[in-house]
């Protein structure tokens, strides 16, 4: 019998600020950390219950509990503003950023989950003009 433990922590903050009738600012920041792991698997010693020569088998399974390890940390940021540059015309700017760090393994003897190292980041800047009429 083995324990499988998962932990997930989420933090978020969101703010909107309207300093004037022309300007509107907003931002959202979130952080998420999730881990999952098995306790080490201690397989019973069955050598005295075997008939025949199975000494070529390896029943230790020392690293089996590491196959399903997860350890991700991710940061997501969104911020932007809208500025009324003329009557019925607003300039907008939005930034989205996502970064994920995969601490579930290494490239060596402690392998990552089945997809390999998933660490990476992505960002997007979206901007334009809004016309109201």
């Amino acid at each position: 019998m083995v324990d499988y433990k998962t932990k997930a922590t989420s933090l978020y903050a969101n703010a909107n600020f309207v300093p004037s009738q022309r300007l509107h600012l907003f931002t959202t920041l979130s952080y998420h950390k999730s881990t999952a792991e098995y306790d080490p698997v201690e397989m019973p010693d069955i050598t005295d219950k075997l008939e025949g020569d199975l000494t070529h088998q390896d029943f230790s399974f020392d690293h089996m509990h590491e196959y399903s390890n997860h350890d991700f940390g991710s940061v997501n940021l969104a911020l932007g503003f809208g500025y009324l540059i003329a009557a019925q015309t607003t300039f907008t700017f939005d930034l989205e950023y996502a970064d994920l760090t995969d601490d579930s393994g290494t490239a060596g003897t402690d392998p990552y989950y089945v997809y390999g190292d998933e660490s990476g980041s992505w960002y997007m800047i979206r901007s334009g003009l809004k016309f109201d009429f």
Binding site: K5, T6, K7, A8, T9, S10, L11, Y12, A13, N14, A15, N16
Partner: peptide, 10 residues
């Protein structure tokens, strides 16, 4: 302003 914290342990 809004902010929050959620933990999940299983």
């Amino acid at each position: 302003f809004t902010a929050g914290l959620t933990l999940n342990s299983s």
